Amino acid sequence: MLRTIDLRGRVLSPAELLAVVPRADSARDEALVIAARIVDDVAVRGEEALREQAAQFDHVTDHAIAVPASHLDEALDSLDPGVRAALEEA
């Protein structure tokens, strides 16, 4: 049964919002297990796994795996300098 939580007209901090809106721990745990399986599959089988997952989840086939360099350059150019510096340091 779904529970309705009416938040209209309320301004909540992130902590208050988390306290009001329940989280399903089991769903989160299941999602983490599935995500780990996907990552492990790509680590083991590489491009073949990526292509299968693209077909399964996005219904996309016969596409380029590599991101064109021009797209990467464009993304870097539009990135906030502080964020870029933090990413480069990390």
Rank of each mutant, 00 (worst) to 15 (best):
E16G: 07
A31K: 04
E88A: 15
V44K: 05
L18Q: 14
P22A: 00
E48D: 13
A15K: 08
L32K: 14
H59Q: 09
A69V: 14
T4D: 12
L72V: 15
R8Q: 04
A86F: 09
V67D: 12
F57N: 04
V42M: 01
R51I: 02
P68C: 03
A49C: 05
L12M: 11
G9S: 01
E52I: 00
R51M: 07
L7T: 11
E16D: 08
V33A: 10
L50A: 05
A35W: 11
L76R: 06
R8N: 09
D77S: 04
R3L: 12
V67E: 12
I34F: 09
A49S: 02
D62Y: 01
D25L: 07
S13R: 02
I38W: 12
A86T: 04
S78G: 07
A86K: 05
G9P: 00
A19K: 06
A66H: 05
V67W: 04
R84P: 01
A43Y: 09
E89N: 13
E47A: 02
E16F: 07
V42C: 00
G9R: 03
P68A: 10
H71D: 15
D41S: 07
L79V: 04
H71S: 14
L7N: 03
L2T: 14
I65A: 05
L50W: 01
Q53I: 00
L12N: 00
M1W: 10
E74A: 09
V83E: 13
A24P: 03
D58K: 08
I65C: 03
S70M: 07
R45K: 07
A43R: 15
P81E: 05
S70G: 10
R37S: 03
P22R: 02
M1G: 14
D40E: 15
T61A: 13
G46T: 03
L50F: 07
A31V: 00
A64M: 02
I38C: 13
L32F: 05
V60C: 06
L72I: 02
D29C: 09
S26F: 07
V42L: 08
